[in-house]
């Protein structure tokens, strides 16, 4: 049985790396006696994979782990024991069965939603105007830095939603994510700032990943909606 788990990562745990989160889940499953399937061979390991790694320092309420089980466990029972054993900063939000044919979380991710909070009041004043300009533009070219080189890309088609909540001063964006057209929320912020001829200081922005999405029948839906509740 293939299972998808949605979890959050908040508070002090944002300093735990992706690799260590994998180790955390391996030990969590053993503490809970979840019947995880192990690979064959002399050094067997749990058949476990994760969605797009979260950068160090970022909070998220939409992280996913896919794991294979040797026998079925009900969602209710699994959630009860996982929640009893996990630390408060990693909340286990759901535990659902996946079709044997479904893509794993990493391959399925096409979009991610982020919120960006800024502490600078001057920035808040100009943001709505910048968002309007960006949304109206057909071409928004930014320089994307990779490990090897810099390339210019048009990020406009990669932004599905972009809005500003002036009550809480939060920018909300739904942007391309995953193995093909991945862009970072920082890049969108850079583009936004360029419409006001300014730059943001990295540490003034509080970015949070809200959820990750895939495309099903032409619709953008949460990875959480793919699985089904196990009775």
């Amino acid at each position: 049985m293939k299972v998808r788990i949605r979890f959050s990562k908040t508070g002090a745990l944002v300093y735990i790396s992706h690799l260590d989160i994998m180790r955390y889940f391996q030990k969590l499953f053993r503490r809970c006696d979840i019947p995880v399937r192990y690979s064959e061979g002399f050094s067997p390991h749990q058949i476990l994979s994760f969605s797009n790694p979260l950068p160090l320092g970022m909070e998220s309420t939409g992280e996913y782990a896919d794991v294979e089980l040797t026998e079925p466990v009900s969602s209710e029972e699994a959630l009860r024991s996982l929640r009893a054993q996990t630390v408060p900063e990693i909340e286990i939000m759901s535990f659902k069965e996946l079709d044997a044919s479904s893509e794993n979380a990493m391959a399925a991710v096409k979009y991610a939603r982020y919120t960006v909070k800024t502490k600078d009041p001057d920035v808040c004043d100009i943001i709505p105007d910048c968002i309007r300009k960006l949304t109206e533009a057909e071409n928004v070219t930014v320089v994307k830095k990779t490990k090897k080189n810099e390339t210019e890309i048009n990020i406009r088609p990669l932004i599905a939603e972009l809005a500003f909540d002036n009550k809480d001063n939060i920018i909300n964006m739904l942007i391309s994510s995953g193995s093909t057209d991945n862009i970072k929320p920082e890049l969108v912020m850079k583009a936004l700032a360029s419409f006001a001829n300014m730059t943001f200081k990295k540490n003034d922005l509080e970015i949070k990943r809200i959820d990750q999405y895939t495309i099903s029948d032409g619709r953008i839906i949460s990875l959480d909606e793919i699985g089904t509740w196990i009775q």
Partner: peptide, 13 residues
């Protein structure tokens, strides 16, 4: 914390 090696050494929890 983001500028040092293995910040997990210092955070507990």
């Amino acid at each position: 914390l983001l500028s040092v090696e293995k910040p997990a050494r210092y955070i507990g929890h």
